[in-house]
Design a protein around this nucleic acid. Structure first.
Lengths: 254, 254
DNA sequence: CGCCGCCTTGATAACCGTCAATTCTAGTGG
DNA sequence: CCACTAGAATTGACGGTTATCAAGGCGGCG
């Protein structure tokens, strides 16, 4: 709509790591200004992706790691017959492409859920820099480790949780990440489709829809298409662990 | 039984990375002999764990990464009320402890499934070495990435597969890893309990038991307590993707 | 304005989890 | 050597949560 939007966006894209809003979340976290300059040099470009655009596909040869700068991505795998499994949704400050380090080939696909901008870190350059800046290497490891922790959390969800709990955990986790980004964690924008959410949680889309409805009925959420408002954060939190505490099964019908 | 076993084991433990049987699978993969010497220096000790021993617990402060040298481990998380979720089983050559890099605290627990020996890589030392040996840093990344890929595969399993397929994939994956270790991939030794397997796959122990029985009935496996023999590897492989190809539902009853 | 995809809602059934009993194994002691 | 026990694994009957199938509503976009 606004014709200047694109231009502004381009300006933003050209900002260096030092002035990036993600400064603390991204690789620069905890390194000196001097070291930062070196990192800046490794960031090749800051690509812009439109909704549905693919950042990399399974089988692509590995060239770079990517950091989400704005917008959001989903990563997923697809088996031969087209069945897909979503591995994660990625918000600004999060890294994608790590799974390609093992075999020099991407083992998943990354796709933009909305218009997004991405920092590309060509791996050969990145390697050189991290060799010279140990703190940066440490930070890179830290970020990758964060991915692993996040995946472990997801396994707990997929392991043996009822549907309502899965969705509650998903929303609470999203709210957390919003907070880290200094966004309002009570007003979520679900850039992914319902079936993406369902797939990610190991459910079908109908179940997700039903649970949304139920949560709205009990007053925890206000759902409006992609806009979700968390009305009772505490109760949402309690829904995250309910099945293990039978006495909390019923809602506040004291 | 053999009184010399312990002594031999101790000798083995003292062997350096250079002579380790896991040479190609472990960190040393693809680095020079010279660089290897530096790595040897970082490996503090090679600890021995008995069945049930804990390598680290959730919350422990992070000191080292660990490589399984022999035996096998399980890693898992436990929420407040004691519910556990197994994250993975780890065979020789595989690394554990990566999830601690993010926060300097272990976010899971690692426990030996049998008598195992473990290479401990104190992280401060490891950092120094990888700073000096880029190839080693690369290799470390590669191994961590392998973990991530493995976890992605597991998410596909947990996502939406029927019970039989889950177990089939689990066994096939184990067989693969046996092959990489140059063991006979058709004769598996399940060092973990049935309920460990069930938990890992997001099922209950009864279901796992039933599926084992069914697989034995159709002649794919021969199950004897912890010893599993894969009689028809091809058919096992077909069971891994059956639900999506209806025409393969029935076995070769041509 | 009208199509089309996404989401929602409802009815039915299946797979798997729960509960309960039995068998098997390994470890212990008589 | 064998009986005994405790824990693990198996087997069976049943029920519940969620998938499946089917239809209808809503919003976006040409």
């Amino acid at each position: 709509m606004d014709p200047t939007a694109t231009i502004l966006d381009l300006h933003q894209l050209r900002r260096s790591c030092g002035s990036c809003a993600l400064h603390e979340l991204c690789l620069p976290g905890g390194i000196t200004a001097e070291e930062l300059i070196q990192l800046d040099a490794t960031v090749r470009d800051k690509r812009t992706l439109d909704r549905g655009d693919t950042l990399y596909r399974e089988g692509d040869s590995f060239g770079a790691l990517y950091v989400v700068r704005s917008g959001s991505l989903k990563t997923f795998v697809q088996d031969e017959d087209g069945q897909m499994q979503i591995l994660g949704f990625h918000l600004p400050g999060e890294i994608v492409g790590v799974d390609a380090l093992a075999s020099d080939r991407h083992m998943s696909q990354a796709e933009a859920l909305e218009r997004s901008s991405i920092c590309e870190l060509p791996y050969t350059r990145l390697q050189k820099v991290v060799a010279e800046v140990p703190a940066l290497n440490r930070q890179l490891m830290r970020i990758i480790s964060r991915e692993v922790v996040e995946e472990h959390r997801h396994m707990v969800v997929m392991g043996k949780q009822p549907a309502q709990e899965r969705l509650a955990i998903f929303l609470a986790s999203l709210a957390d990440r919003y907070n880290r980004l200094q966004r309002d964690g009570t007003r979520l924008t679900l850039t992914m489709s319902r079936s993406d959410i369902a797939n990610y949680l190991g459910l079908v889309v109908e179940t997700v829809s039903r649970v949304f409805t139920r949560m709205e009925e009990i007053g925890v959420l206000e759902v409006n298409r992609k806009a979700v408002r968390i009305l009772q954060p505490e109760q949402l939190a309690s829904l995250c662990g309910m099945n293990s505490r039978p006495d909390l099964q019923r809602k506040d019908a004291s």
